[in-house]
Amino acid sequence: MIKIEDLKLFYSKKMWKRILFIAKKEIKYNFRNRWVILLSLLFLGLSVMVSFYGTSMEAHKDWMGLQNTIIYMTTYIEYMVPILGVILGYSTIVRECKDGSMELLLSYPIDRGEVLAGKFLGLWTVLSISVVFGLGMGGIIISLMVEEVVLAEYYLFILSSVILGGVYISLSMMFSVIFEEESSSMSASIFVLFLFTFIWLFSMYAIAELTFGWERLQMGRPPQWYFMLQLFNPVMLWYTLLALNIVPLREWALEFGGKEPEIHPYDTWVMIVLLVVWIAVPLIISEKIFNSKDID
């Protein structure tokens, strides 16, 4: 049961100030990390290169336009944004607990939940700036080179990528709270990264083969529970969110994935809400664990 005092605390100005101070410190700290800057530049370079050269398979040698760039970029972003999220989040708590700076910080009048919220906010801002700068600058360059520009879809692509990054920051922060060693936290984060990309894909194929059959999957008519199962993967949520809203991607997905299913539970807002749930749940778990943990 929620008490009035809890609500007061939630709206406490001081609490939000402290969260923002932690976030500010994280932003300052991480922008001095060369890896973060390097990845931002990589996003920029990649979007421009992909637009001009296409994929290596097609050996495209002309500017493709933003819509087609999105199609090819999804393959890269699917890995790169989660990698950036993991880089930012996996050590954020465990490292500070190990080196003693967390002990010092928690001797100040601040709650552990505020530390986590501030860190998440700061790291997410770093990731957002990095993705928005990289992809945004790329988008501007491509827009100047091509005639047909549909910016709304590109904005959605950037925004959804930022949300996906938030999921991986939240997940890797959770491992950073759970584990006592940076290497364990990194391993768990990388495992989850692979789980939701390679392992998931092959597991879903295997499930399809063993249950309703491969042919039905190729026809694009798996049972509804199969669609429901996909909702447990944030990368699939992100991809579906894009496919639901970016026309060429939807067409491309249908071309390679079979006919459009007649019955499925997918909807833009459901996808967004579920992605937010993917951010919130690991953060809530982190808060519970962190609060019960002895700092030594």
């Binding site: 001081k14 100030k17 402290r18 101070f21 932690i22 410190k25 300052k28 700290y29 001095r32 990390n33 080196d99 003693g100 700076s101 002990e103 010092l104 910080l105 001797s107 100040y108 009048p109 601040i110």
Partner: peptide, 27 residues
Amino acid sequence: GYLPEKVSFYGNLTVSENLEFLCEVKG
């Protein structure tokens, strides 16, 4: 005010940035 046995600051921040941050947290 507390001095831990193994005191550590944020290495990538300067002396005054560290103190400024702690000052902000303490209001």
